[in-house]
Amino acid sequence: MMPLGTAEVAKIAHLARLAIREEEVPDYARNLSAILELVEQMNAVDTTGVTPMAHPLDMVQRLRADEISESNQREHFQAIAPRVDAGLYLVPKVIE
């Protein structure tokens, strides 16, 4: 894996919706490249046939009964919202 370039950092930052100042991009590129170099130590190990481990415990999903347990708490939840009107969360125009 080649070190990450500034263009790639900008692309990833866009995917992650992070505004990064242009002058910071080289720093990020350097740090991210170093981290990737660190994690690439994994490549030294052959993991053919090893089952990936997504969870520490070998358990299965528990299911809950189909019951309504939540009541309307809109005012409570929207008290901490940056911008609401008529019960709606407001955002800059969504273009479909």
Partner: peptide, 12 residues
Amino acid sequence: QRRILVGTFALS
């Protein structure tokens, strides 16, 4: 932000 970027990259 660094970790978000690393993770975003690793899953991309």
